[in-house]
Deep mutational scan, measured.
Amino acid sequence: MTVRVDGVDYEFSSLEEAVRFALKMAKSKGAEVQLHNGTFHVE
């Protein structure tokens, strides 16, 4: 599972870890999280 934040990809071994990271980053940026074909994008 890959989480992309500001064009940088972060790899996670589990969906749970990836979701937690994506939500944490989105909250800190006041951004939204989108899921596309198994890849999260924080914008």
Rank of each mutant, 00 (worst) to 15 (best):
M1L: 10
M1F: 15
M1W: 15
M1N: 06
T2P: 01
T2K: 12
T2M: 10
T2C: 15
V3M: 02
V3N: 00
V3E: 00
V3T: 01
R4V: 07
R4D: 02
R4A: 02
R4T: 09
R4G: 01
V5C: 15
V5L: 04
V5G: 00
V5I: 08
V5D: 01
V5H: 03
V5E: 01
D6N: 10
D6Q: 04
D6W: 08
G7T: 02
G7H: 03
G7P: 00
G7E: 03
G7R: 02
V8K: 09
V8A: 04
V8N: 04
V8F: 06
V8W: 04
V8C: 15
V8S: 03
D9F: 11
D9I: 12
D9A: 10
D9R: 08
D9W: 09
D9K: 07
Y10I: 03
Y10C: 11
Y10Q: 01
Y10H: 04
Y10P: 00
Y10T: 01
E11R: 14
E11F: 14
E11N: 12
E11M: 13
F12R: 00
F12C: 12
F12G: 00
F12K: 00
F12T: 00
F12W: 01
S13A: 11
S13K: 10
S13M: 09
S13Y: 08
S13V: 07
S14T: 12
S14P: 00
S14D: 06
S14A: 03
S14W: 03
S14F: 02
L15F: 13
L15M: 12
L15N: 04
L15I: 12
L15T: 09
L15Q: 08
E16I: 11
E16C: 15
E16G: 07
E16R: 11
E16W: 14
E16Q: 10
E16V: 10
E16L: 11
E17V: 03
E17A: 10
E17Y: 03
E17W: 03
E17F: 03
A18I: 02
A18R: 01
A18V: 02
A18E: 00
A18K: 01
A18W: 03
A18Q: 01
A18F: 04
A18P: 00
V19E: 06
V19Q: 07
V19F: 14
V19W: 15
V19I: 13
V19S: 04
V19G: 02
V19L: 14
R20Y: 08
R20Q: 10
R20F: 08
R20W: 09
R20E: 10
R20A: 12
R20S: 08
R20C: 15
F21L: 01
F21R: 01
F21S: 00
F21K: 00
F21Y: 04
A22G: 01
A22E: 01
A22N: 00
A22L: 07
A22M: 06
L23Y: 12
L23E: 04
L23C: 15
L23Q: 07
L23I: 11
L23V: 08
L23P: 00
L23A: 06
K24I: 11
K24R: 11
K24L: 12
K24G: 05
K24T: 11
K24E: 11
K24N: 09
K24M: 13
M25A: 05
M25K: 02
M25V: 07
M25L: 06
M25Y: 05
M25S: 02
A26C: 14
A26Y: 07
A26T: 04
A26H: 04
A26N: 02
K27G: 10
K27V: 12
K27F: 13
K27Y: 13
K27C: 15
K27N: 12
K27R: 11
K27L: 14
K27I: 13
K27M: 13
K27P: 02
S28A: 13
S28H: 12
S28C: 15
S28N: 12
S28W: 14
S28E: 15
K29H: 13
K29Q: 10
K29T: 12
K29W: 12
K29G: 09
K29M: 14
K29V: 09
G30I: 05
G30R: 07
G30S: 05
G30E: 06
A31P: 03
A31R: 09
A31N: 04
A31T: 11
A31F: 11
A31W: 13
A31C: 15
A31K: 08
A31L: 11
A31I: 09
A31H: 09
A31Y: 13
A31E: 05
E32P: 06
E32A: 11
E32R: 14
E32W: 14
V33L: 06
V33C: 15
V33E: 02
Q34H: 15
Q34I: 14
Q34F: 15
Q34P: 03
Q34G: 05
Q34R: 14
L35N: 04
L35I: 11
L35F: 14
L35Y: 14
L35Q: 05
L35H: 05
H36P: 04
H36F: 13
H36Q: 07
H36S: 07
H36R: 14
H36I: 15
H36G: 08
H36N: 09
N37S: 04
N37P: 04
N37V: 08
N37G: 10
N37R: 05
N37W: 06
N37Y: 09
N37F: 10
N37E: 09
N37H: 09
N37C: 15
N37T: 06
G38Q: 05
G38K: 07
G38R: 04
G38L: 10
G38S: 04
G38N: 08
G38P: 08
T39I: 15
T39L: 10
T39N: 10
T39R: 13
T39E: 10
T39S: 12
T39C: 15
T39P: 08
F40A: 09
F40S: 07
F40H: 08
F40I: 14
F40P: 08
H41L: 13
H41D: 09
H41C: 15
H41W: 14
H41Y: 14
H41K: 06
H41V: 14
V42S: 07
V42D: 09
V42A: 06
V42I: 08
V42N: 07
V42G: 08
E43C: 15
E43K: 10
E43S: 12
E43H: 11
E43D: 11
